Simulated assay, not measured.
Amino acid sequence: MRPDHLRALGLTPQSPAVVFDTDAPALALGLIGASLFVDGVGGMIVETEAYMRDDPASHSFRGPTIRNAAMFGPPGHAYVYRSYGLHWCLNIVAADGGAVLLRALAPLEGLDVMALRRGKGLLCAGPGRLAQALGIDMSHNGLDMRRSPFCWGDRSELPDFVQGTRIGISKARDRPWRFGLRRSPHLSRPFPTS
């Protein structure tokens, strides 16, 4: 996506390399409100989950394997894996073997392409839907997310976010490392209200 196209959407082009080199919870929060495009298709990130190296729910917990090798590489690279043998999931590598799972985004650009990939219904609410809508597969694993086919738009202001425990896991479920854009209709699942 060209910088002038991002400006037309009201976004500031950026390369968030500095933000990637931090721990996973800080990166997960920092990504809320930023926009991600893959070959011009994408939108604003509205939900993330963080996973740290010492986290029993993390793929990096037991050390490097062929499957999780990208998690032990440089921050800012993609870690892609298949969940339950069905859905690709896109993660952004953080510092020290951590990663951030992109759980949902608000579609902004390439909606027709997303609809062709996804069919009717929710386009990017949930990590599997998000990856399918963006055309993510194993060929993206290990790629530097600061380079093509990825393109970023900076958030225009500090978002009003919510924080809660992670979902869809069986270990370390109490860690409050799920972040979302408050009142977004594009979340994979609502956050509990207090």
Rank of each mutant, 00 (worst) to 15 (best):
residue 24 A to G: 13
residue 57 A to D: 00
residue 114 M to Y: 10
residue 139 S to R: 14
residue 11 L to R: 13
residue 33 G to I: 09
residue 58 S to E: 00
residue 139 S to H: 11
residue 114 M to E: 12
residue 188 S to Y: 03
residue 185 P to K: 07
residue 19 V to N: 00
residue 103 R to W: 06
residue 164 G to P: 08
residue 154 D to S: 05
residue 14 Q to V: 09
residue 117 R to F: 08
residue 192 P to R: 13
residue 66 I to E: 12
residue 129 R to N: 15
residue 73 G to E: 15
residue 103 R to Y: 09
residue 7 R to G: 04
residue 40 G to Q: 09
residue 23 D to M: 05
residue 124 C to W: 01
residue 139 S to I: 02
residue 147 R to H: 14
residue 185 P to H: 05
residue 66 I to G: 10
residue 69 A to E: 12
residue 30 G to W: 00
residue 124 C to V: 00
residue 188 S to M: 10
residue 48 T to Q: 08
residue 72 F to N: 13
residue 118 R to C: 08
residue 3 P to Y: 06
residue 57 A to S: 00
residue 185 P to E: 07
residue 148 S to W: 10
residue 19 V to Y: 00
residue 116 L to D: 15
residue 27 L to Q: 11
residue 20 F to D: 00
residue 89 C to K: 00
residue 128 G to K: 05
residue 122 L to I: 01
residue 122 L to C: 01
residue 72 F to S: 14
residue 121 G to R: 11
residue 119 G to K: 03
residue 39 D to Y: 06
residue 157 E to F: 12
residue 118 R to G: 09
residue 21 D to H: 04
residue 93 V to R: 01
residue 29 L to I: 08
residue 107 P to D: 10
residue 142 G to L: 06
residue 85 G to F: 05
residue 44 M to H: 02
residue 123 L to C: 07
residue 55 D to Q: 01
residue 167 I to N: 12
residue 144 D to N: 15
residue 100 V to S: 11
